Computed example of a mutant assay.
Amino acid sequence: MAVKRPNPLWWLWYAFGGKLPNRYREWVLHDATAPTWLVRHVLRRLVFMAPILSLLYLLLAVILGYDVTIVLLGLGLGIYAGVYYALIFSTHSVDTRVTRHGYPDDYASQVRRALKQAEREAKAAEYNRHWRQEGET
């Protein structure tokens, strides 16, 4: 059975920090443990920052008439800082998001570690099957 994905409005609510209904609980875990979980997290943060950055641009460049180059440089530094902090606190933020949807504390990190370990073991088994002779250690 496929995981039920939220529609775009629910996803926006989720990107802005809202809790999804229980029917999307498995999708939240998938979102937090997929191989692309970090990219997804950064994209959610960028979506969160977009309206704020747009309002700042409108205020500074359009209404107040500041130089567009200076405004864009400032907004670029804001994006840099936002992504920097999103990356620093990504594990904690994603684990908290998963906990809010009914999973135990640090469950997403545990699942990611288990998936990474299983992948490592599968690669080692494939390597050994291909390159090692029978009875060789």
Rank of each mutant, 00 (worst) to 15 (best):
M1Y: 14
P6T: 11
P8H: 06
L9F: 13
A15P: 10
F16K: 07
K19L: 14
L20I: 08
L20G: 09
N22E: 15
N22D: 15
W27E: 08
D31V: 01
T33R: 07
P35C: 00
W37V: 04
L38T: 10
L38C: 09
H41Y: 03
V42G: 09
V47K: 00
F48G: 04
I52S: 06
I52V: 15
I52L: 14
L53D: 02
Y57L: 10
V62Y: 02
V62K: 01
I63Y: 06
L64V: 03
D67L: 02
V68H: 09
T69W: 07
I70V: 12
L72D: 10
L72M: 11
G74L: 04
G74P: 05
G76H: 04
G78N: 03
I79H: 00
G82C: 07
Y84H: 14
Y85W: 15
L87W: 04
I88L: 12
I88R: 15
F89Q: 06
S90T: 02
T91E: 15
S93F: 09
D95K: 05
T96V: 10
T96R: 11
V98T: 13
T99C: 04
H101N: 03
G102Y: 07
D105N: 10
Y107D: 08
A108G: 03
V111Y: 00
V111L: 04
V111E: 04
R112L: 09
K116H: 12
Q117V: 09
E119T: 10
R120F: 13
A122N: 10
A122W: 03
A124R: 11
A125K: 15
N128W: 14
N128S: 11
W131C: 10
T137V: 14
